[in-house]
Structure formats: structure tokens, C-alpha cells
Amino acid sequence: MIPARFDYLRPDGVDEAVALLGPGTRVLAGGHSLIPALKLRQTTAARLVDVGRLAALRTVELDAGVLVIGAAVTYAELAAHPLVRRHCPVLARLGGRVADPQVRHRGTPAGALAHADPAGDAPAIALALGVEVAVRSAAGSRTVPAGALFTGRRETSLRAGDLVTAIRVPAHDAAWYEKFTRVSHMWAIAGACAVRGPSGVRVALANVAATPWRATGVEGALRDGATPAEAAALAADGTDPPDDVHGPAAYRRHLARVVTGRALARVTP
């Protein structure tokens, strides 16, 4: 299985990288979403801009209570990093569990957000955490809230000249991601991330809609005093799960309620 031809550029800095971006160009970090898609010839790219080694994208730091994770930080690095383990255990745990060790050594959470696979774990977790994606482009820097990032199945509001530079994770009190799979290394058949923070509980689901799905009904019910179990019963409301070889839509709707209940049980006292 062999990808079609493309050019490859490896800039030395973020400014240079941004200058290279444009139509037909794809950003390459770990490549564990992009390279398989290129090999299967499901997607094409005229050229790849490799930002995987840019030092500016390889840092993890705390900025006034916000955890800032560089876009080229891998899952394995996330799992091992003391700041991530202390301030965002749900991402540290993901970093040690998603897919398999080899994939975790290359894949990046930021790349997963840009790839926006609704079956992915990182997008749902990011949505529940309320992360902001730091973006650089020729026009300057901006942040995009996760809630405004995912626009469709593997589609984002990012534009051709945009480079994701970091994920900014706000402080929270507790978070848990509950994933249901049949075999350990696979994508979630359905997953739910619950995050308890200063403004209440946020819940987002994986693989139940064309995008990572914010379960606002569950959140509202909790605010209105529902028990976690009562709130979890609303988890499938409004979802439009895929009907594929891993599970029919009705099963995923049911699983959405189950994993939401389990995730809520982990974050509600």
C-alpha cells in the first residue's frame, strides 16, 4: 500500500512553517492519521510540511493555571510528563492507553484534533475539557475553542494556512474518559468524557455523531439537580451515531448512555 507522490518540507521554525502552508499542503506531525489515509489514497496532498521536530511545538508548560501542550508532543510524552500527570490526568491516562505503544510514540493529540475523527478519543476529551487550540497563520495568532473547531466528519474550521501550535487545557477539578471497545487497541465504539470544573460538569462523546458530541442535555440535567444516572439517560439525545461494522446506531446510542453514566460516576462526588 503506497501513497501517491508529494513534496516534503521540514522548516526550522514556526514562522517558516506557517509561510509554507497553503492550499494542497498538509501539516505532518506524527503522521499517524495522515500517513495511513495517504497510503490508502483516501486523501491526497501536494506537499507535507513536517513540524514534528519544531522545538517550539515540543514543550509542555503551565501558563497561569492553563496547561499548554505543544502540537508536536506525542501521546507517550503526554503520559510521562509530570505537569500533565498532575494537572490533566485524563490526558496523561489517554497518552498511555490510546491505540498501542508504537502509535503512542508517534501520534500527537494535536494532530488528532486537526484530523477530527469523530471516533477519536482526543477530540471528545478536548471538547469536554473545553480546550482551546492555539493557531498561527500568516494573519497572526488566534485561539479556537474546541467547541468551534469540529465542523463535520473529519472537518474543522481550520483553514489551509493554519498551523496548530498548541492545545490549551483549562484547569478543572476532575475528569474521566470512559471508552468502550471490544479489543484493546481499537477505536471507541462509543466513548464519554466527563469533566467537573468550576462551572459544573461538561460531557462530550466519541463516535456518536459526525463530530465529537457535546452532551448538553446531560450537563443541563445535572445543573438542574438530576442524579448522574438520570442525567446519563439523556446522553444519546440528539446524537446521530454511525451504523458500521463495529456497531449499529441503536447500540451506540445505548452505549452512549452507559459510558456517560460510568464517566459521571468517576467525577461526581
Binding site: Y8, Q102, H105
Partner: peptide, 17 residues
């Protein structure tokens, strides 16, 4: 690759430069 296990069917040779 640099001491970490990777699946070499999903790494470009140029990435290992």
C-alpha cells in the same frame, strides 16, 4: 526509532532523517 518502538510502515523515511 531513536530508542522508541514505531511502526515503520507508517513513518516516512524522510521523517527518520
Amino acid at each position: 526509532l531513536d530508542g522508541r518502538t514505531v511502526k515503520s510502515c507508517t513513518v516516512l523515511a524522510v521523517q527518520a532523517d
